[in-house]
Amino acid sequence: MRCALIFVALSLLASSSLAQAPSASNVEVIYDKPEQFRDASLDSHGYERGADEYVMAELRKYLEQLGKRYLPPGQTLRIDIRDIDLAGRYEPWHPQAYEIRFMRDITWPTIDLHYVLTQQGKTLGQADARVSDKTYLQRPGRRAQSDRLYAEKAMLDEWFRKQFAVQRHTSY
């Protein structure tokens, strides 16, 4: 009986200290009318407008990871994605026209969004942004990547880091 009471007391103590710990960084991604996005599908449907579930899930997961990496504890970032134009294009005059996205200098990735950064209910910043990467073909390591959204993720990483990363000073 005494061991059970000690266990219950320790459990309550642990759960109350966890409740008081600062919350982890949080990113919420919302897609605004994804069926109308310019080009957000990796499905082999060619030029249909809209976003597919794979693209939306992958970008959401990646933005959440960026939040954990770059936002300080206690901050929340809401990102409303309003349009996506993935890198590359399907070119109907090629064999396998709707299975291969051809990457060209003029087909860079672009994501239109609105973000709101808050901490403890106070808005720290908000803005509309057009995130794009016109030099996506020159990124180091591009050819070694098998990720189908490598260009978009690299672009978002650069934007996120520049926009939200906390400057950490280290002494050497």
Results as ranks from 00 to 15, higher is better:
H45T: 13
Y47V: 05
Y47H: 14
E48Q: 13
E48C: 06
R49E: 11
G50T: 07
E53T: 06
V55W: 06
V55E: 12
M56D: 03
E58V: 14
L59V: 10
L59E: 15
R60I: 11
R60V: 11
K61C: 11
K61W: 09
Y62T: 04
Y62G: 09
L63G: 07
E64N: 07
E64T: 11
Q65W: 09
Q65L: 13
G67H: 03
G67I: 08
K68L: 14
R69W: 07
R69D: 12
R69F: 02
Y70K: 08
P72V: 08
P72Q: 08
G74C: 08
T76C: 04
T76D: 13
L77D: 03
R78C: 04
R78D: 14
D80P: 02
D80Y: 04
I81E: 10
I81K: 03
D83K: 02
D83T: 05
D83I: 08
I84V: 09
A87G: 05
A87Y: 00
Y90F: 15
Y90C: 13
P92Y: 14
W93P: 01
W93E: 15
W93D: 15
H94P: 02
H94D: 10
P95N: 05
Q96M: 15
A97I: 04
A97S: 04
A97R: 00
A97Y: 00
E99A: 14
I100Y: 01
R101Y: 10
F102L: 12
M103T: 09
R104F: 09
D105Q: 07
W108P: 02
P109Y: 02
P109D: 12
P109N: 14
T110H: 08
T110K: 07
D112L: 09
D112H: 01
Y115E: 10
L117D: 06
L117A: 03
